[in-house]
Design a protein around this nucleic acid. Structure first.
Lengths: 206, 206
DNA sequence: CATAGTTTGTGTATGTGAACGCAAGTATTA
DNA sequence: TAATACTTGCGTTCACATACACAAACTATG
């Protein structure tokens, strides 16, 4: 492991590789070449090899990559080799979709707490977790949760984020549009669906 | 307008600017400087000026940018100055969230058709549109719809995309994980929630 | 054991985007 | 009108990411 200076783009691609590897593993494959993996994902083979080389290289020349080993190594790099407990704030349509999303478990995430401010929802059980009042966010610190999914309207996103950070949350996946201010040591990744959508017409012919 | 060679990253940022401008307009502001807009969004002022300069520059030196004019210009660049009818394929949790998402209208999108393969859902009305059987996708061509949101499981994503492209869809916003093959003239933007999530632990301290 | 055929790992060239600085234009004030 | 303060537009420099080529390492085969 060199970890010398890993490009952000490489980190962005690692989860993609992971997803593809699971698929191949399920299919019964044992090893895969950079070429095979590349055309499965839709990128160039040398891109894949270069990405892995930042961490020392996981393959065997003349053979390829052992899928199981490679999976483990990538998980280790991304710190996904331990279970991460996450909290969901905002159990609206989007929040429900997140709860039902099958992909999270694969990556080692477990939604261990849900919060909402709608009295009608509070107390109901969904997917095995009881929806709590947002005021209970401050109990999170003791529950070993340091990741949160923010699926609330823009107007309350900053407040919710502040509360989460207060109790030790270090990473936030935010679905609300707009910019929020957070301390440097907190990582926020924003998915703005409408904004992704808005780029489509530009690239469409006609 | 020079349109000489616009970086993809610039196009990626334009919707963000649009979102911020709406907010400022609602607040009652009339003009905004690159510095003001920058700190509102969380980027550098020269980034914003550079981005606009690719299109010829919309501001007035010593004053700033007229918010209303700027909004119109950005919409024109992104081809958002006309209403785009879109189809939703897959009315699961995520599909419902998309339907309920308030942001789309702002950008000029209208979900004009919904499809699912669940007999229990077909025929029911949601947000003003009736859910149709996926076999009805082939009627889309006559309805002037050339954009689609794909919120189906990975296993049927390729098939659904093929069907959509057959009837003239040119742009797809895909939520399913995995890679799909499409003709060059079709633009696919993928949002893989789990994958975005998977990057978080890497950037978190501890 | 030698040879042919694969496939990785990585140094380098090329391309693309971000950061910066500054001239040029605009408003304001005296 | 002149001077000052402000803000844009854009050329240039620097940093990062991709594309590529090729030596090194491994397998298979006769």
């Amino acid at each position: 492991m060199r970890y010398y200076k890993v490009p952000g783009e490489t980190i962005r691609r690692l989860p993609t590789y992971l997803g593809a590897l699971w698929f191949l593993l399920e299919k019964g494959d044992v090893t895969v070449s950079s070429t095979g993996l590349a055309e499965f994902i839709g990128v160039n083979p040398w891109q894949i090899r270069k990405d892995f080389s930042y961490f020392g290289g996981f393959g065997k020349r003349g053979v390829g990559y052992d899928i199981e080993t490679l999976t483990k190594e990538i998980k280790k790099i991304l710190k996904l080799d331990v279970i991460h407990k996450a909290a969901l704030v905002g159990v609206g349509n989007l929040g429900l979709a997140v709860l039902a999303y099958p992909g999270f478990k694969n990556y080692g995430f477990e939604i261990a707490a849900c919060f909402d401010n709608d009295p009608k929802k509070i107390g109901t059980r969904i997917n095995g977790t009881i929806i709590e009042d947002v005021s209970k966010i401050r109990t999170l610190g003791k529950r070993g949760i340091n990741i949160a999914v923010l699926a609330v309207p823009r107007s309350v996103a900053q407040q919710a984020a502040d509360d989460l950070i207060d109790v030790g949350v270090k990473g936030i996946l935010k679905f609300s549009p707009g910019y929020i201010t957070v301390p440097k040591k907190v990582k926020v990744i924003t998915i703005d669906i409408a904004m992704a959508f808005a780029r489509l017409p530009y690239y469409m012919p006609g």
